[in-house]
Deep mutational scan, measured.
Amino acid sequence: MDTYKLILNGKTLKGETTTEAVDAATAEKVFKHAANEHGVHGHWTYDPETKTFTVTE
């Protein structure tokens, strides 16, 4: 398992979190669910070198 990071750049919610996942696709599902639960919808990017997802509203 690897550690993946999410950076939230929402209009009303900003922050960072991490998750352990077997691959980037699994981490993305976890992060998108969490972002949706917090009402953050926007443009997603992924940097494979740093294993970091970013969502920007």
Rank of each mutant, 00 (worst) to 15 (best):
E16L: 05
T17Y: 15
E28C: 11
Y4T: 01
V22P: 15
A35S: 05
V55A: 03
I7T: 04
T45W: 07
K29P: 03
E49M: 12
A25W: 10
A21L: 02
V40M: 08
T50R: 07
T17I: 15
Y46M: 01
H38L: 15
W44T: 01
V22K: 14
T3D: 04
G10V: 08
F31P: 00
G42K: 02
V30T: 10
M1A: 08
K51Y: 07
Y46R: 00
G15L: 15
L6E: 02
A35E: 02
T56F: 07
T12D: 13
W44H: 01
T56S: 08
T45A: 10
N36C: 10
G39D: 06
H43V: 14
T3C: 10
N36W: 14
D23H: 03
K32Y: 08
K51H: 08
G15S: 12
A34M: 15
K51G: 03
H43M: 12
V55Y: 03
D2N: 13
F53V: 00
T12Y: 15
M1D: 06
V55N: 02
E57A: 06
A24V: 12
E49N: 11
P48C: 06
V22T: 12
V22C: 09
F31A: 01
G10E: 03
N9G: 04
Y46L: 02
D2L: 11
D23F: 02
T19I: 14
K51F: 08
G10H: 05
F53Y: 06
A24D: 04
A24Y: 13
Y46Q: 00
A35M: 11
G10R: 03
D2S: 13
L6G: 02
G15A: 15
L8C: 09
E49W: 10
W44I: 03
A35D: 01
N9T: 07
Y4Q: 01
E20P: 06
Y46W: 04
K29W: 09
M1S: 09
T12E: 13
D2F: 14
H33N: 11
N36E: 14
K29D: 08
V30Y: 14
A25H: 10
V30A: 11
L13V: 15
H33A: 14
E49R: 09
K29H: 10
A25V: 11
V30K: 08
G39V: 05
T56E: 09
K14R: 12
A27L: 01
K11Q: 14
T18H: 10
E28A: 09
F31E: 00
K32N: 05
H41Q: 12
E57W: 07
V22W: 12
T54K: 05
T19W: 07
D47M: 05
D47E: 09
T26P: 01
G15M: 15
V30R: 09
T12G: 10
H33F: 10
T19F: 12
A21P: 00
F31S: 00
I7W: 04
A21C: 08
H38W: 14
L8T: 05
V30E: 09
K32W: 11
K32A: 07
F31T: 00
A25G: 08
T52R: 02
K29C: 08
L8M: 14
K11G: 10
D2R: 09
L8E: 03
H43T: 15
G10A: 06
A34S: 09
T17M: 15
G39F: 09
E16M: 06
H38S: 12
M1Q: 08
K32E: 05
N9I: 15
K14Q: 13
I7S: 03
H41N: 11
W44D: 00
H33T: 12
E37Y: 10
V40D: 02
D23T: 04
T50G: 05
Y46A: 00
L6F: 07
T18G: 04
K11L: 15
G42Q: 02
G15T: 14
G42A: 03
K51D: 01
N9H: 10
T12L: 13
T56C: 07
G15Y: 15
T12K: 09
G10Q: 04
T17L: 15
W44S: 01
T56W: 08
A21M: 02
A24K: 12
F31L: 06
E28Y: 15
V40K: 03
T52F: 03
E57F: 06
A35Y: 05
T18M: 09
G10S: 07
T3S: 07
H33S: 11
E20K: 13
T18C: 10
A35H: 03
T56Q: 07
A21T: 04
L6N: 01
M1V: 11
V40H: 03
T18R: 07
E20M: 14
A34T: 14
K29A: 14
V40Q: 03
K11R: 11
G42E: 01
V40G: 02
A34Y: 15
V55W: 03
V55M: 04
H38F: 15
T18L: 09
T17C: 15
A21Y: 02
T45G: 06
E49G: 11
A21R: 02
F53L: 01
E37T: 12
E20W: 13
D47W: 04
T26M: 11
A34H: 15
W44G: 00
F31D: 00
V40E: 03
L13T: 13
E57P: 05
E16T: 10
W44V: 02
H33I: 14
T54N: 04
N36Y: 14
T50E: 06
F31H: 01
T54A: 04
E57Q: 07
A34N: 08
A27T: 00
D23K: 02
W44R: 00
T52D: 00
T3F: 07
A27R: 00
T45Y: 09
H33Y: 09
H43K: 12
K29R: 12
I7A: 03
V22S: 11
T17S: 11
G39I: 08
K32F: 08
T52I: 07
T50K: 07
K51N: 05
L6R: 00
N9L: 14
D2H: 14
P48V: 08
G15H: 15
Y4V: 01
K5H: 10
T26E: 14
T26G: 09
P48G: 06
N36M: 14
T56L: 05
H41P: 03
K14A: 08
T17W: 15
V30D: 05
A25C: 11
F31K: 00
T50V: 05
P48D: 09
F53R: 00
I7L: 06
G15D: 08
K5G: 03
K29T: 10
T45I: 07
T18V: 09
A21D: 02
T26K: 05
T3I: 13
T52E: 04
H33Q: 15
T26A: 15
T12F: 15
T52Y: 03
L6Q: 01
A35L: 12
K51I: 02
K11S: 13
E20R: 11
T50C: 05
T12S: 11
G39C: 06
K51T: 03
E16S: 09
A34D: 06
K14W: 13
D47R: 03
F53P: 00
T19R: 04
T19Y: 12
E28K: 08
D2K: 12
V22I: 13
L8R: 01
L6P: 02
L13W: 15
D2V: 12
V22Q: 12
P48F: 07
L13Y: 15
I7F: 06
H33K: 14
L6T: 02
K51L: 11
D47H: 07
T50I: 06
V22F: 12
V40I: 14
G10K: 04
N9P: 04
L8V: 10
E57C: 06
K11D: 10
F53T: 00
G42R: 02
M1C: 10
V30L: 13
T56H: 08
G39N: 10
P48T: 07
N36H: 14
W44F: 04
L8Q: 02
E28F: 15
H43G: 06
V40P: 02
V30M: 10
H38R: 13
N9D: 12
I7K: 06
K29N: 09
A27G: 01
T54P: 00
D23S: 08
T18I: 08
K5A: 04
K51E: 01
Y46C: 01
A34C: 15
T19P: 00
T26D: 10
E57I: 06
T18E: 08
